[in-house]
Structure formats: C-alpha cells, structure tokens
Design a protein around this nucleic acid. Structure first.
Length: 427
RNA sequence: GGAGACGUGGCCGAGUGGUCGAAGGCGCUCCCCUGCUAAGGGAGUAAGCGGUUUGUCCCGCUUCGAGGGUUCGAAUCCCUUCGUCUCCGCCA
C-alpha cells in the first residue's frame, strides 16, 4: 500500500515505478481524487469546528439559564448539521476510492531489480555445487511410487488431484527435513520458532497483500476463515497494528506449516508428482526490521535459506527476479532454484522477498525511532521460504537416488532419521 | 453452542451525558540535587488526517476495540459486530 503523500510528492517516480512493472500510469487519476477528497475534508472540518464551538456555548447557556440563547444556538447547530451529511458522503466516497485503488497497486521494484517481462529476464547471481548428471536419472514420483511410499492415487481417492499420501520412511523424511530446517534457523540464525494459526481472517490476508486482489488463489472455509497459502501470512501479521521500538528490531520468526493453494490458473502445469500441490508444507522465515536494516536482512535471509541446501549438499543457483516476475508486495525477490537430476533442470525451492514498508502500511505496523521520541515510522517486512519442505524431499530423492531405486539419507538428516541410512522399498 | 463480565494512551488503570484526549501509576525523555551506586525533586510524553509554514511552531478535525444510532452535546446511553475472560455444555 502506497502512502498517498509519497504519490503527491513524487508522482513521476511513482508512475515510472509502475511502468517498470509494465503498468499504466495512475498518479494523475489518484491525485485528482485526492484533491477532491481534501477539498471536502477542509469544508467538513470547518463545519465541524462551528458545530463544536456552538455546542460548547449551549452548555454554558444552559448553565446560566439563558433559554433564549440556548434555543438560538440549538437552531444554529441544527442548520450546520443539516449540511454536513453531503460533505461527509463525498469525502468518504473519495477516500474509499483512493484506498480501493491503492490497495490493488503492487509494490514498486527496487532500483537494482532487472527489467523484464517474465522469468526469462531473471538474472543468476550465484551458483553452488555441480549439477549431477546421472545416467537414467528417475523423477521423484517414479522413485517414490516404486518405493511404495508416495501414493497419488490413494490421495486422489479422498481429495482429488494435486494431493499426495506419503508413507513409511518418506513420510518420516519429510518430518526430518522440517525439523532439520527449524533447528538450523532457530539455532544458528536467531529465528524464533512459532506454531501459528493456519486459518486466518480477511484482515490478515489484506495486510500481507493476498487480498483483495488474489482471492482465486486461496481456499476459503464456509465461515469467515481462509486457509493460509503460506505461513508468511501468519508470521507477518504477528505485528499487525503494533507500534514497536527500534531496540527490539529486527524480529525474526520461523514456522513449519502446511500451505494451501487453489492453483487456479496453473491447470496442466506440473500435474505429475509433488512439485505443485494444493497442500504442501514449508518452513517459512519472516523478519521485521527498520528501513535501514532491510537490505542487509534480505541478503542474510537468503543466505540462511541457501545454507539449508549447502548442508544437504544439493546444488542450487540463486536468481534475482525481474520486474515482471515479482510478486505483488515485493520490492526485490531472490529465488533459489535447486537442481533436479530427474527433471534435468533447476526448480524453485525458495523465494525471499523484501517488501519494504508495503505490508507494514497495510497492517499499520510502525516503530519508534530511537532517540527521536516523536518519530513513528512504518517497519519493513521480509519473508522467505527456508525452504519448501515438499520440494526439498523431491530434490533429495532425485539427487540421492541409487541405481537400485533406493534413496540415501543425507548426512545432515541422519540424526533425524533414527538410524535409517537408506530409504528402500517397503517389504 | 448457552449464561455473564469486560475491551480506555507504550503498559497498568480511573472515569455512567457537557468543564475528558482523558485522573493516577509504571515506563521513557530532559533538567536539578546527591562526590560512584541506590534514592530524591521538577518538567515533558497518544495516534491519524488536514490547514499553515517549510520556522517539526501554531491552528482545526477525527479517534477511548470496530461499525451504526439516540442527543444541541457520548469514553459514558442504545443496537450490531469483533475480541478477551469466567462458568456451563461439548470435544482433540
């Protein structure tokens, strides 16, 4: 959500930012409405001032027992009040109009984000590990089904397509991966582990930017709740409406949760396997920082996510998303892509975004600037996957597969697997 | 789900129709005193929006969970709604 004052003062920069997103200019239209709204605000304020002053005098007149004055003032107030509803209506309508427009405008890309229409313009900034070229590399679903521990048919029986039933050591492996990630982020990167609600109200989704624009991506309950599409929603909204102090920033939260996505509009893509499911689990990282800290924090967070892959010895590359490929609330996003030998390509396993003050304005989350008691500014928010657990399972299976169809357990996960070193077919 | 209580500034907490944006306390900031420490004294301290000015000085409006209503006037009365707590029911 943009600050209307920013648009007033920098209309050209605002439109230029939108242009980088491939969007038409909006400043002129918004400022015209803004000017109308302010005009009526001034008129309304003046009427309210008169009304308040007269009301005060009424109290005094009554105390003095001056009935004539009392009645005269009552009529005066009455006449002022009769004119107010019109101005009120117009002012509210204009303000609502501005809010409705602003709430659907995406964040403006940071200066150093590469320009481009789509993912083709993303730029690789790092590469780690050597992509394995296995002979006869199998995809994870073939491996998993052969092991008898990854069952899409049974899942479809109860839930339809885009669901999976994991069993045996693969089910345990998923739990091991998540535990490993949480221990790393809490133990070495200072994140606080959270176990947040998975069902949230409109307001929370508005705060992080999924609403009002992206309802079709979400699952809604029959009541007032929505299923979270990512723990970013729950973790970021921890500070919704809060006034924090500079001393307590940055705040860092992590959580392992299921995520629910309708995947409307992705029909036909990744229909086989665990790459794109309606329900998947993810370890999420969220940071709340001061504006000064957010750039460094973004690098740090991305590093924390990359560290997971390094410890699992999974080759990856890190990309900066182009202006056309970024999400709604992001100023800058790094995608981490893991190498999948079965598919023979890199696939997204993490997305780390700096949202600047975009979500903070929507949530009205601010902090007191240290040393300046009057200053209260919006915080910055960041979120990243650290990592998508299901896709990590896929990456481990494809990278650690053996010729006999078994899957070796990465060293880093052995402590979490109760002595199991290799995942083999169920007897 | 049923019954009741409550939601006030960063926090705690008074306030049942006008003098309340709001006592008091805590916290915080500044100053004074005390040769460290501890303690004491004084002053200040809500946010949002707009006007004015670009002199962070002044002025106005709005806000006491949220939304609506009654009234010349509401933190205070009424309705709706959200949330919290207690008891009961149910249940993992």
């Amino acid at each position: 959500m943009f600050d209307i004052r920013y648009i007033r003062e920098n209309p050209d920069a605002f439109d230029a930012g939108l242009a980088r997103r491939g969007l038409a200019p909006r400043a002129g239209e918004i400022l015209a409405i803004d000017e109308e709204a302010r005009k009526y605000t001034v008129v309304l304020n003046e009427m309210q001032e008169k009304r308040n002053a007269a009301s005060k005098l009424i109290g005094q007149a009554k105390a003095k027992g001056d009935d004539a004055e009392f009645n005269r003032l009552r009529e005066e107030v009455e006449s002022i009040k009769s004119q107010m509803p019109v101005a009120e209506d117009i002012q509210k309508k204009k303000q609502d109009e501005i809010r409705d427009i602003l709430s659907t405008i995406p964040n403006i890309p940071a200066e150093d984000v590469p320009e481009g229409e789509d993912e083709a313009a993303n730029v690789e900034i790092r590469k780690w590990g050597e992509p394995k070229r296995l002979n006869d590399a199998k995809e994870h679903f073939d491996l998993g089904e052969a092991l008898g521990q990854m069952d899409f048919e049974t899942a479809a029986k109860m839930s339809g397509s885009r669901f999976v039933l994991l069993k045996g050591q693969l089910a345990r492996l998923e739990r091991a991966i998540a535990s490993f990630m949480l221990d790393l982020h809490t133990g070495e990167f200072g994140y606080t582990e959270c176990n947040p609600p998975l069902l949230v109200k409109d307001d929370a989704l508005y705060g992080t930017g999924q609403l009002p624009k992206f309802t079709e991506d979400l699952f809604k309950t029959t009541g007032e709740h929505w299923l979270i599409p990512t723990a970013e929603v729950s973790l970021t909204n921890i500070v919704n409406g809060d006034i924090l102090t500079e001393e307590e920033l940055p705040l860092r939260f992590t959580a392992w949760t299921p995520c629910f996505r309708s995947e409307a509009g992705s029909a036909g893509r990744d229909t086989r396997g665990m790459i794109r499911l309606h329900q998947f689990s993810k370890v999420e990282l969220v940071s709340i920082t001061t504006p000064d800290q957010s750039k460094d924090e973004h690098e740090r967070m991305t590093g924390a996510a990359e560290e997971v892959l390094k410890r699992l010895d999974l080759p990856f590359r890190t990309m900066v998303l182009s202006t056309g490929d970024m999400g709604f609330g992001a100023q800058k996003t790094y995608d981490i892509e893991v190498w999948l030998p079965g598919q023979g390509q890199y696939r997204e396993i993490s997305s780390c975004s700096n949202c600047g003050d975009f979500q903070a304005r929507r949530m009205n989350t601010r902090y007191r600037v240290a040393g300046e008691k009057k200053k209260i500014n919006p915080v910055h928010t960041l979120n990243g996957s650290g990592l998508a657990v299901g896709r990590t399972l896929v990456a481990i299976m494809e990278n650690y597969q053996e010729a006999d169809g078994s899957v070796a357990v990465p060293d880093a996960l052995k402590p979490y697997m109760g002595g199991v070193e290799k995942i083999e077919a169920l007897k």
